[in-house]
Amino acid sequence: MNLNRMYALSIRHLYLIKGSFPRILDLIYWPTIQIILWGFISKFFTMYSDYYTNTVGVILSCAILYDFLFRSSISFNMLFLEEIWSRNFTNLFVAPLKISEIIIALTCTALLRTLIGIVPAVLLMSPLFGVSIVDMGPSLILLFLSLYVFGITLGVLVTSGLLRFGPSFENTAWSSLFLLAPLGCVYYPLSILPDWLQIISKFLPLVYIFEEARSILVNNIVNYENIINALLLNIIYFSIAVGVFYYSFYGARKKGTLVNMGE
């Protein structure tokens, strides 16, 4: 055993952490998010332990819905990251592809990628736990649509960051959704959040989607106001995200990152 050699290997990684603020932030980020998310879940179950008593599968259904959102966003990001990792990125941007064509192609491919991942999980729910998300009825389609649009919106925003700042923005791709989990009220109602956080959360379509999902699963009531709110917010955010993508492309051309992407 040689201490110097082991020390050398350790400081190689310490230098990396010391020289990269995003890496330090990343180390702090995950435990903080976990604590916040599970803190609110624990608070909810402590205060309303009988809320889900007669409703089997509410948490499981919400988990599936949240995973659908997660998969759609990550799928979009992954399609873009794959091009960076394979160093094929520049080839795409010297092909006669319009920005709108890139966004539409990735959006459609991301849907396919998401479905490949989520359909087996949905099918397994029933034999394993006796719960079927399909029981939510036709409004489930609207919830999935809303989640998909929001997932793609996040994907477009993260991809804009990748375009503008290069692969160093990659960590954001992985962490963006986890930030929204506590605020999106996936596993508990909006009322469990402190008042000031409720105000922020109401700007997220997720709150309306998951409130609606619980309304259907627990009370068997479809509240179209929630669905409309979610869709309207989604349209606004998606339009902003597309604008940001165009702006990032312009910025990347100005900065020259399209040539050196992946290096």
Partner: peptide, 24 residues
């Protein structure tokens, strides 16, 4: 001009050792 850029790229191509094709 974006329209011209797309039109020109249809008739242009490029090769560089720093750019690769998808490996998989």
């Amino acid at each position: 001009i974006e329209k011209n850029r797309i039109e020109v790229l249809e008739k242009m191509n490029f090769i560089s050792p720093y750019v690769e094709l998808p490996k998989k």
